[in-house]
């Protein structure tokens, strides 16, 4: 039997490498870049009474003559109209505060789970994940029942004699905070838990041995070492909350202007797909910047290589 040509193995190796590298790029191209390109294209068009309801970006006018029309008015409008800017800012503010609240609530919980006895951990984790078994919408609806003026919370507070008249929580920004923190808390806890459970407890013992009191040891050892988990959790909360639509729509009031709701209005009520796309593109740009910054920071923390 003749020996296989020597470069055959090399060749298949190269092919498999190409496939290995290619698949993520294909994935990225198919599920991110392509939709992005479509949205970008729509954002540069003009609304039209047609199906689909926007103008084509290019058309063949004549043989050999391609006319491309790029309409930047949508971006200009988003930039000029303070409505969009204030919605973006409010969304960022809501996302920021909610991320902070999730972190403040989630960190102690994740820490408690990570340091709990082995047999308890799985139960506690189950409790964190359990709400996911109920539809997200139904859980948000449940909050309407809790927060409304004749809801569980107000009834309880009145029964306890803490308040006389019901608190107006539903349809306010506070209700959005409650709903978002409730819904997104697991997304903060799980990466933090994954991170903290890997924390080498002997590091804390070493810190104590070197004269470090528990609080300082937490600040100087646990906290910096869990920074990757904090960043991951914060991104998992912050990014979707900026564009969150369902919670502000169901729990928020008319004054809680968020970009997700604005997108909905532009897309559905105004049938203005181009403007909605422009808004989406700007939102994406606004999110990619902090994302890349965090990624950088994380690399610096994790890698530590100069």
């Amino acid at each position: 039997m003749p020996a296989p040509p020597p470069n055959r193995a090399k060749h298949t190796h190269r092919t498999s490498r190409l496939v290995n590298i290619g698949i993520p790029y294909l994935w990225l191209g198919l599920f991110f870049l392509l939709p992005f390109a479509i949205v970008l294209q729509i954002s540069l068009a003009e609304p039209a009474l047609a199906q689909p309801p926007y103008t084509a970006l290019w058309q063949w006018v004549d043989e050999g003559l391609l006319r491309i029309e790029i309409n930047l008015r949508n971006f200009m409008m988003v930039a000029e109209d303070d409505l969009y800017l204030s919605a973006l800012l409010n969304s960022l503010q809501v996302a920021f505060i909610c991320t902070l609240l999730c972190l403040l609530l989630g960190y102690p919980m994740a820490y408690a789970i990570a340091t709990a006895p082995e047999r308890w951990r799985i139960i506690l984790l189950m409790l964190i994940v359990l709400p996911f078994w109920t539809s997200f919408l139904i859980r948000v609806y449940a909050w309407i029942g809790i927060l409304k003026s004749k809801g569980l919370l107000n009834d309880l507070l009145i029964w306890l004699g803490l308040i006389d008249t019901p608190l107006a929580i539903l349809h306010t920004q506070t209700a959005i905070y409650i709903g978002v923190v409730y819904s997104y808390l697991p997304f903060m806890i799980l990466p933090l838990y994954a991170n903290l459970s890997r924390l080498d407890m002997s590091l804390l013992e070493a810190a104590a041995d070197l004269g470090c009191r528990p609080m300082r040891a937490f600040l100087r050892v646990t906290l910096p070492l869990s920074m990757a988990g904090i960043l991951a959790g914060s991104m998992l909360v912050f990014i979707p909350v900026v564009g969150e639509f369902v919670i502000p729509d169901l729990l928020g009031g008319p004054e809680s202007l968020m970009v997700g709701k604005l997108l909905w209005t532009e897309f559905f009520s105004n049938k203005d797909w181009p403007l909605a796309s422009a808004l989406a593109i700007l939102l994406l740009a606004l999110l990619v910047v902090p994302f890349v910054m965090m990624q950088r920071l994380q690399q610096r923390i994790e890698g530590g290589r100069p």
Binding site: P47, L83, P254, E255, S256, L262
Partner: peptide, 19 residues
């Protein structure tokens, strides 16, 4: 017209948000 409706809707969004 679409333009009139959009203007009205944007005015509406602003009114609702009390801005």
């Amino acid at each position: 017209s679409d333009r009139e409706i959009r203007d009205l809707n944007r005015l509406w969004t602003r009114l609702k948000a009390n801005r």
